[in-house]
Nucleic acid binder design. Sequence first.
DNA 1: GGACAATTATTGTCGGACAATCTGAGTGTC
DNA 2: GACACTCAGATTGTCCGACAATAATTGTCC
Lengths: 217, 217
Amino acid sequence: MIEVPDIDRSSTTERVAGALREMLFAGGVAPGDPLREISLAESFGVARSTVREALQVLAAEGLVTRYPNRGVVVTELTARDIAEIFEARLVLETAGVRAGAAGRDLSAATVALSAYAAAAKADDPVEQTEAHLEFHTSLVALLGNSRLVAQADSLNQDLRLALASVQRARRNARAQVADHRRLLSLMRAGDEAAVTAELDRHLRGAAVSVTERLLAP
Amino acid sequence: MIEVPDIDRSSTTERVAGALREMLFAGGVAPGDPLREISLAESFGVARSTVREALQVLAAEGLVTRYPNRGVVVTELTARDIAEIFEARLVLETAGVRAGAAGRDLSAATVALSAYAAAAKADDPVEQTEAHLEFHTSLVALLGNSRLVAQADSLNQDLRLALASVQRARRNARAQVADHRRLLSLMRAGDEAAVTAELDRHLRGAAVSVTERLLAP
DNA sequence: GGACAATTATTGTCGGACAATCTGAGTGTC
DNA sequence: GACACTCAGATTGTCCGACAATAATTGTCC
């Protein structure tokens, strides 16, 4: 097999969607901001129909919201939305750590945790958030169910969007990493009750923290 | 306030997507069948771009699959997909019935069960499947989390698509309804362990049955 | 100040065009 | 006969321009 560099085989629509996604996660546009088809088409140098398709992709992911005949705006999350997201994550991730405690292969989760620990040392909040959520997704991945992973991913994307507007490195990154390390070792020990309790505690704390940061003036 | 009939305020795209959805659920097109943009546009009497948008909506829902530069085909589910769907449903619905056993308001689920019982008497398999899945969704709805309900809905849609190709009334509709009634009464009794066990049993049995029906020649 | 009409901005839908890509048939080579 | 190659046809991906439909805004009148 010959080594070939990865040719970019993505469509224009995908690239536009990707660029918009980056803008959203980097906080380039704030929740509630309108995304005008014409102006985006001019900025990217593509046709309006292409932008429309890209926006529809993002709308399906929940990152933007379409109001009929009025256009697309960056999705705004309420405190209730945040609560729902964390509750849903708790449901999915609890199922994941149960499987983990029951003896699934934890190597992928271990790798994800290392990546998170590394990102925590560097001071890039976007990168850190991504690695953090990546680890949580890896917990769901313990179930080996692609649909559940996709659902977890979707929840995490919504969260990333919300966090973009208050992006700053968590001060206690080290404590955070320790929290996650504990989850892993409890799974290794096979202590299902303890790991689910710890996950519950962890996510509840995070939900409170995120909500506070979002609603703080 | 004057009573006005519900004006159809949906866009052309939505109507086309809806029509396609019906075709899929009614088995008008089989999994693997291609959906050509031009021919659909002519059939519906709309522009190709409108069909494209509708297809993208369905693709986001997972009902159809887009192969770049080769078009869109009705999604084909493998035995593994079926297993994943049922496992994912088990995760979501277990969380639901736990909440139910913990004392949530069960009236919505009760209503859904009545509707299912009624549909089971009539002999419309499409209607019956819909009511059945509706009941299961109502279990997830016990959590009061719209995101989890949406995820459950999405799983059920995929299942409906798969079932469309082998659509016929379950012979033992009465036994099915009894199964579900049991779930409800166990929740009413607040017996969490029993209701989760029963749900597990019920879904595993359904998974086997569906898989057999799909793979049978 | 509020009801109402006129203006404007934007989306929703259409039709046509063309390049890029995939498919399959045919052709030639070994 | 198996294989590589070329080529034509079909289909998608993307662009452009147009215009109706709808919503937001402004302006006008009482």
